[in-house]
């Protein structure tokens, strides 16, 4: 079941980019995710087929427990499906080893979490550098430069030596976005990035994501409960009870 492409933003890329835009970046085929305990079997995702194209900004909506976060975890290779295949940039990754999965996550994917998941013992700069620590052959100087550039993009250059506890919620989410950007991933997966923020801060973060999408043509998949935020993205995918409904 191939979803139709709905856009809310005009595409301004070149012809070459436009042709690339139609190539799948994330492809899920017949994905099932079942959580099993001794007594209960819960189907979180039921035979999901979904393709996210390169450069798309897609939002996933649905009620709590419908499987949208599970879907995002599977797309981000943070979890394994019970059955089905996942392709990232045309390559099936379902049978990848821990090392290979780590490499794909490090090079291709950036995560933004609802509760930021910053490491409180590390400074803002060290937090943003984190994905680059696992990049083979990258020296400390280059790491620092890239992290500073990412912080500049989110407007937090003046907060590099602060610790997460010294920042507001919006600032923390900006740090988390900078961390997701530092490794220049082709995909950003955002799990309710505005969920823990007030409406003003939420708008700011959303604008930031839209800007990043426009400027870097990054593929973004965002899980949200907020209809108004979802409508700002190019496509809205709706889930109910583990299945895609639109």
């Amino acid at each position: 079941m191939e979803p139709t492409l709905t856009t809310s933003h005009a595409l301004t890329d070149s012809r070459a980019t436009t042709s690339l835009k139609n190539t799948p970046m994330i492809k899920l085929s017949e994905i099932e995710k079942v959580y099993q305990t001794d007594t209960i079997e819960t189907v979180a995702l039921n035979r999901v087929n979904l393709t996210i194209n390169r450069g798309e900004f897609v939002s996933i909506m649905g009620p709590s427990g419908c499987g949208k976060s599970t879907l995002l975890s599977l797309m981000g290779l943070l979890d394994e499906p019970t059955s089905g295949t996942i392709e990232i940039d045309g390559r099936p990754v379902t049978s990848y080893s821990d090392k290979e999965l780590a490499k794909v996550r490090n090079h291709k994917i950036g995560f933004i979490f609802q509760s930021f998941h910053l490491i409180n013992d590390l400074s803002v700069l060290d937090n943003v550098e984190l994905p680059l620590l696992y990049r083979a052959g990258m020296g400390g100087k280059e790491r620092r430069q890239r992290a500073l550039a990412a912080l500049e993009k989110v407007g937090l250059s003046a907060r590099t030596k602060h610790f997460p506890s010294q920042l507001s919620g919006g600032q923390r989410q900006r740090v988390a976005i900078a961390r997701a950007l530092a490794g220049a991933p082709e995909i950003i997966l955002a799990d309710e990035p505005t969920g823990n923020l007030d409406s003003v801060m939420g708008e700011e973060i959303m604008e930031l994501l839209l800007t990043l999408h426009r400027e870097a043509n990054t593929t973004i998949v965002m899980v949200t409960h907020d209809e108004s935020m979802a409508l700002k993205t190019e496509r809205v995918i709706r889930f109910f009870d583990g299945s895609q409904v639109s």
Partner: peptide
């Protein structure tokens, strides 16, 4: 565990 999850999400292998 949050730190572990984040590190894994951003590319740390079990060995690292």
């Amino acid at each position: 565990s949050s730190e572990i999850g984040v590190r894994k999400a951003f590319g740390a292998t079990g060995g690292k």
